[in-house]
């Protein structure tokens, strides 16, 4: 019995053939500053799920219909692309682009959504004397966003865990799409947001 239990615990961390894995994101909303982003995967046809999780933030308000402020709406999302060196004006570096989503009011649509951190397009940090640099992870309030899911990473001015790096590695190692850029076809790797 103890051996079986021990084996079951080991399963949570056992690495199977990575190429056979099927993975997806989940985001459990708790607060804007402290929610949980997870990467889950299976090795079909086995239904056994494996999980790795990290603290994530989303929005500055809990109304999922408030554009530019509310956290991500609940539901399933398709993933539209992934970059290692995204060069946006607000979002840079390692990012995952997810689909637009209608919120619970049945009308308002959240758009321009990503999973990302605060880093430069070259995966570095740009930290100045300003209170909040957009491409430098400085403090807990950096988990806030306009709606996106944000992951922490270390910087010269704060020692947060390298959750972005860990999530990125886990994504590619356990079932995440290998391709980078905008996806031409619908991606099997999805995101499920819930409370």
């Amino acid at each position: 019995m103890r051996i079986a239990l021990f084996a079951a615990l080991i399963l949570c961390w056992t690495v199977g053939p990575a190429s056979a894995a099927n993975g997806w994101w989940t985001f459990e909303r708790n607060t804007n500053l402290n929610s949980t982003l997870s990467w889950k995967w299976t090795y079909p046809p086995s239904p056994v799920e494996y999980t790795r999780s990290w603290r994530g933030g989303s929005g500055t308000a809990m109304d999922e219909c408030e554009i530019g402020r509310g956290w991500l709406p609940s539901g399933w999302y398709a993933q539209k692309g992934h970059w290692d060196h995204y060069e946006g004006s607000k979002v840079k570096g390692r990012v995952w682009w997810i689909q637009d989503k209608t919120c619970r009011d049945g009308s308002t649509r959240r758009t321009e959504l990503f999973i990302h951190s605060e880093e430069t397009s070259s995966n570095g940090q740009s930290c100045s004397s300003a209170y909040d640099d957009p491409f430098c992870w400085e403090r807990e309030s950096d988990y806030y966003s306009n709606g996106c899911i944000k992951l922490a990473r270390p910087s010269p001015v704060a020692s947060f865990p390298n959750d972005l790096g860990a999530a990125h590695t886990t994504f590619h190692d356990y079932g995440g799409k290998a391709a980078h850029g905008a996806y031409d076809t619908a991606d099997a790797n999805e995101l499920y947001v819930y409370s």
Partner: peptide, 15 residues
């Protein structure tokens, strides 16, 4: 139709 509970992929909505 675009069901908010489902992903685009699940509904056959392509880019």
């Amino acid at each position: 139709e675009d069901d908010p509970a489902l992903s685009w992929e699940d509904q056959g909505i392509a880019p």
